[in-house]
Design a protein around this nucleic acid. Structure first.
Lengths: 189, 189
DNA sequence: GACTGCCTACCAACTGGTAGATAGCGTCTA
DNA sequence: TAGACGCTATCTACCAGTTGGTAGGCAGTC
C-alpha cells in the first residue's frame, strides 16, 4: 500500500467517523480498526489528531470548492444551480452522513483553534458562493428576492444545515428536499 | 447544600458543557471542577454518564414544554407566538449556547440508544407544536401558508436549528433573527 | 440507627502520543 | 552489477494522563 492509498483511506474513514459521531468521540483506535493499520502507524501520516482534523476539513473544503466552481461555470440557470447545491446535502444525508462542518460546529468549543478557524471559513465560503449565485440570478432576471442576497444566502444555508440536523435526528433523510426546494422555487421567477 | 441544589447545579453546568463542547467531549472531571464536588460524588447523583445525559434532555424537554404550553395558552396571535418561539433559540445563542438537541444530534451515532430516542422525541415534539400553531393560525385567518402546515413546520424548525449552527460557527448570534423573522412574516397575513 | 451526601482511594480501559526496530525499495557509487 | 545508504511505511512496546465507574468510610440529619 502506497503512502497515498493509506493516507486517503485514513481520511475517508476519519471523515465518516467525524460525520456520524463527532470529532471528540472518534479515536485513533477506531480508525486503526477500520483501516487495518496499527494505531502508532497513523501518527506517521498524521502526527496529531489536530493535523488529521485539519486535513479532513481542508480536503472537504477543496472538494466542495471544486464542485461549486463547476456549478458556477455550468450554463445552468440560477434556480437549478441552487437546487443542485441542495442536492449535495440531501445526497450525503442519504448516505448516512451529516455535513462535516455542521457536525464539527456542534463540538466547536472543544476544537483546537486551527480547526475552529477552518470551520468558520467553510461557512463563509458557502455564504459567499450562495450570495454571488443569488446576485447573478437576480441580475439575469432569473431570481427575485424579497430581502438582500446576503440574507437570502443565510436563509438557504441555514435551512440546509438545519434540515440536515433534523433529518439526522429523525433518521429520515427525505425531509431535506421538501424544506429546501420550496425556498428556491419562491426565489425563482 | 441539599440534594436538589447540588443536583440542579450539576445539571446546569453539564448542560452548558454539552451545549458548547458536545456530549462526548465533556467529562465528569470537568463537571467536578465547575460544581466544586468530587468526581466520585457526581456518581451519587447520576450513577452513569448516560443517566446524566438523559436527565439533561428530560429537563430541557420539560422546560420547553412548559414554555410552549404557556405560549399556546397566551392570547397572542400566531405570528407573535412563532416569533417568540424563535426568540428562544436566538436568546440562548446570545448566551453562547447551542440548542441542546442540535448539539446532541451531531454526536448522535455515539450516543447511547436511550439518549438517541429522546433527541428524536424532542424534534418530534417541536415539529408537532409548530404544526399545530401553524394550523390554528391558518384556521383563524392569521396565517397563509404556501405548503402544508407539516412542511412549514419543518422549514421553521430547520431554519432555526441551521441558523443556530451557522451563528455558532461564525460566532455571530445576530444571524438567527434575520433568517427566522422573514419566514414568519411571509406566513403572516 | 438508618439514610443521605460527600469524601478518599482505588480500578481497568482507553486516550493521544513516543521510541526504537525492521523490512522493503530506490539510488548512488565502487 | 553488487552492495552500501537513506528513506518510507509499518510494526511492537511503551508512556503518562484521563475516562467513566466502584468500594468503603465518615459526618450530619431524620
Amino acid at each position: 500500500m502506497t503512502n497515498l492509498d493509506t493516507k486517503s483511506a485514513l481520511l475517508t474513514e476519519a471523515e465518516t467517523l467525524v460525520r456520524t459521531m463527532g470529532y471528540a468521540a472518534f479515536s485513533y483506535a477506531d480508525l486503526s480498526d477500520r483501516v487495518g493499520i496499527r494505531k502508532a502507524s497513523i501518527h506517521h501520516h498524521f502526527p496529531t489528531k489536530e493535523t488529521l482534523g485539519n486535513a479532513l476539513i481542508d480536503g472537504y473544503l477543496e472538494r466542495f470548492i471544486t464542485r461549486l466552481d463547476e456549478l458556477t461555470a455550468s450554463d445552468a440557470d440560477a434556480r437549478s444551480k441552487l437546487l443542485t447545491y441542495g442536492d449535495f446535502f440531501a445526497g450525503s444525508l442519504e448516505d448516512g452522513l451529516m455535513p462535516l462542518c455542521g457536525a464539527l460546529a456542534a463540538d466547536a468549543a472543544y476544537l483546537p483553534a486551527s480547526m475552529q478557524r477552518r470551520v468558520k471559513k467553510f461557512f463563509e465560503l458557502h455564504l459567499s458562493w450562495l450570495e454571488r449565485t443569488l446576485r447573478d440570478g437576480v441580475a439575469q432576471r432569473q431570481l427575485a428576492l424579497t430581502g438582500t442576497p446576503h440574507k437570502s444566502a443565510l436563509l438557504l444555508l441555514s435551512a440546509l444545515q438545519g434540515a440536515s440536523v433534523v433529518a439526522w435526528a429523525l433518521r429520515d433523510p427525505t425531509v431535506v428536499k421538501p424544506v429546501f426546494k420550496p425556498l428556491v422555487e419562491a426565489m425563482a421567477r
